[in-house]
Simulated assay, not measured.
Amino acid sequence: MITNKSQQKLQLSSTSRIAFRDALSDLPKSIPPDPNNIKISEKEKNLFKTSLTNWICLNIRSINIIEDEGLKSLIDLSIRIGYMHGPVSVSSLFPCRKTITKEIQKIGMAGRDEMKTVLIKAAKERRLSLSPDLWSDGYKQISYLGCVAQWLDDEWNLCSFDLFCLPYRKPNKSAANLIKVIEDGLELFGLKPFMFDIVWVSDRGSNFKKALAKFTVLHCIAHRLNNMLQHTFYQSQMNKVKQDAVFADYYASSMEDEDDYVSDNDTEDDISFSDDEALIDKRIKNRNNFYATSTRNTLNNTITQLPSDAKRVLVTIIQCKDLVKYIKKVRRISAYLYYYCS
């Protein structure tokens, strides 16, 4: 998605915009020139409001959907068609799921081709930067590699575009596997030949550092500051390690979410660890020490073999117990206020 306001015209493919405009122009010209002059009765407004409310509630839609420009455009087109042809059956207009899927793929290909031209031009002129990052879905147990593109247009406006987000299905997160997935994503936009012309922005994870070592790289200062703040204010490390040991799938640490580490299966001997990696090593050592000294290894092995639904129940119980202390604090404060203020 383009985030710069001056570049919002790129949010939709120009091909789809042109097709939509042509479709409107093909309609008969007897449509009133100014629909705002048409007065609608309060009864009709209330009927539409009730129908819209029922749709949102019964189908569990976000209330913000009424502000969606796409929905307004769709309703506007429906009103125009109904004005010209009278009452029309919804089934005669609404396509099936397969048709919509094909149309999404068609518009997606057209939009990708349009963005190829913009991104390749920016890469050739060395004003394109890419920010790849790994993140994990703790529920589905799937990792993803996403990449955001940023560049300056001809009017010096900063533009941003979500380039790709691909499932990471490699056996580990080594530099060799990482660069392969990045190249697969770049192939979608024809950017693979321009990797040396792109400025790369990433965290200081050793796998990213080695994967992008041949290119121009700027390390993200936000990740650095985040690690510094965690190291400074993280006061309950052993408690978190215990939770991770029992429910590793449901207590993913922020370090793991950032993927600022190399997988255990990675055997890269020439990696030079920065302070960030040293901090992560320290946490891993603490976790290993906990495993070595814990007397609940058998219990942990049993819990890890539980079905995911049973794990979620136990995690919910643990989280509820964690909330009890706050309930007690509130009660003490309430009693204190009642005693001194009454």
Results as ranks from 00 to 15, higher is better:
Lys5His: 08
Gln11Trp: 02
Ser30Gly: 07
Asp34Asn: 13
Asp34Phe: 03
Glu42Leu: 11
Leu47Lys: 09
Cys57Glu: 07
Asn59Val: 11
Ile66Trp: 13
Glu69Val: 10
Leu74His: 04
Leu77Ile: 06
Ile81Met: 07
Ile81Gly: 03
Gly86Phe: 06
Val90Thr: 15
Leu93Asn: 12
Arg97Asp: 05
Gln105Ala: 11
Arg112Asn: 08
Ile120Gln: 14
Lys121Pro: 00
Ala122Pro: 02
Ala122Val: 03
Ser129Cys: 14
Pro132His: 10
Trp135Glu: 09
Gly146Asn: 13
Val148Glu: 14
Ala149Lys: 01
Gln150Phe: 02
Asp154His: 02
Leu158Ser: 02
Leu158Ala: 01
Phe161Arg: 03
Phe161Asp: 03
Asp162Ser: 11
Cys165His: 06
Lys170Thr: 13
Asn172Gln: 11
Ser174Val: 08
Val181His: 04
Ile182Arg: 14
Asp184Pro: 02
Gly185Leu: 11
Leu186Val: 11
Leu188Trp: 00
Leu188Thr: 01
Phe194Glu: 09
Phe196Met: 12
Phe196Pro: 00
Asp203Ala: 13
Gly205Met: 10
Gly205Ser: 13
Ser206Met: 11
Asn207Ala: 13
Ala211Cys: 10
Lys214Cys: 06
Val217Cys: 03
Cys220Ala: 10
Ile221Val: 13
Asn226Arg: 13
Asn227Ala: 04
Leu229Trp: 01
Thr232Asp: 10
Phe233Trp: 05
Gln237Asn: 00
Val241Trp: 05
Lys242Ser: 08
Ala245Glu: 12
Val246Arg: 10
Tyr251Trp: 07
Ser254Cys: 04
Glu256Phe: 08
Asp260Gln: 14
Asp266Arg: 13
Glu268His: 06
Asp269Glu: 11
Asp269Cys: 04
Ser272Asn: 12
Ser272Glu: 15
Phe273Met: 08
Leu279Ile: 02
Lys285Pro: 00
Thr304Arg: 14
Ser308Phe: 09
Ile317Ala: 08
Ile317Val: 10
Ile317Tyr: 06
Gln319His: 08
Leu323Arg: 12
Val324Pro: 06
Val324Leu: 15
Ile327Met: 02
Ile333Lys: 15
Tyr339Arg: 14
